[in-house]
């Protein structure tokens, strides 16, 4: 039983930090461009396929493939921003339509190129750690650690650097930020691209653990949006906690309750939290 719970906690933590890193993109994009980018799930899927392709197809070492996958996903994000999202700033409905259209295009292209047959990468880092008699796969631990590190680094950058301060200032009062000399268009595009890069990183790491298929992004973006709402949109650390909370609730919930309803447990949890804290758990924080 101990092993089962630890296993589910670890799975919950992985899935949760993945929700978290995409939720971070959701919340940053929303704070700076005023739209919810539902296509971030599709960018995650792109990251998955790129990491898989660059390692098993091209033969790159996995770490290089991850960097390559993030670069390619960010580039795709830049193209999407300049051709589509640029025209949807602060327009929630248009943003929704454009991102849903983009999902259809990206998933369709992935189906066409890679078919619906799931792909599995070679084990990147096989083996396990034994901790107090419990089995902890090495790669799973590494993925959680990397995702946490990136989220924490983003938080540090947002709170400690000039660009981060400018982003917070812009989220509070766009015009005043512009009057301080903030290059607002660059900031908006930068945040959109950074968010797609984060999703790409999440995908590239995901690919080393689970099998991938063209539609995997759908669940992740929904959970990420849930996590962002759970945290109170706009909170960086909240996206992480929201994501982990959801992931762990689902993981542990599946031990005791029918697994078929796994996706529902997080949702029930979300509704319960919002009943008590309608603005989200971290409302009022940065």
């Amino acid at each position: 039983m101990g092993q089962l719970i630890v296993g589910q906690l670890l799975n919950g933590a992985i899935v949760g930090t993945l929700y978290g890193i995409i939720a971070l993109g959701v919340t940053l994009t929303f704070g700076i461009t005023g739209i919810v980018n539902f296509a971030l799930g599709a960018f995650m899927m792109l990251g998955c396929y790129m990491a898989w392709y660059l390692t098993d197809g091209v033969g790159m070492p996995y770490p290089v493939a991850v960097v390559g996958a993030v670069a390619i996903t960010s580039l795709a994000g830049l193209v999407a921003d300049q051709t589509l999202f640029r025209f949807t700033r602060n327009n929630l409905v248009n943003g929704l339509l454009v991102s849903i259209g983009l999902i259809a295009v990206m998933e369709g292209a992935a189906l066409l190129i890679w078919t619906s047959t799931p792909k599995n990468m070679e084990y990147v880092w096989p083996g396990v750690f034994m901790v107090a008699g419990l089995v902890v796969p090495k790669m799973k631990l590494l993925v959680v650690a990397l995702l946490l590190a990136v989220i924490l680094a983003t938080y540090a950058a947002l709170t400690r650097t000039w660009i981060g301060r400018a982003a917070y200032a812009y989220a509070q009062n766009p015009e005043a930020a512009e009057l301080m000399g903030v290059r607002t268009k660059l900031l908006q595009s930068g945040v959109v691209v950074y968010s797609t890069g984060l999703a790409g990183l999440g995908g590239a790491l995901y690919a080393s653990l689970y099998s991938i298929d063209p539609t995997l992004g759908a669940v992740y973006i929904l959970k990420a949006v849930e996590a962002a709402i759970l945290a109170g949109i706009g909170s960086v650390m909240g996206s992480l906690f929201g994501g982990v909370l959801l992931g762990v609730t689902e993981g542990v919930g599946s031990i005791y309750l029918p697994i078929a309803f796994r996706d529902a447990y997080g949702l029930v949890f979300l509704v319960a939290i919002l009943l008590f804290k309608p603005a989200g758990l971290f409302a009022g924080r940065k």
Partner: peptide, 13 residues
Amino acid sequence: VLVPEGRQAFVKF
């Protein structure tokens, strides 16, 4: 440099 109408402070800062 413009000091705008209505102060426009960054209220959470």
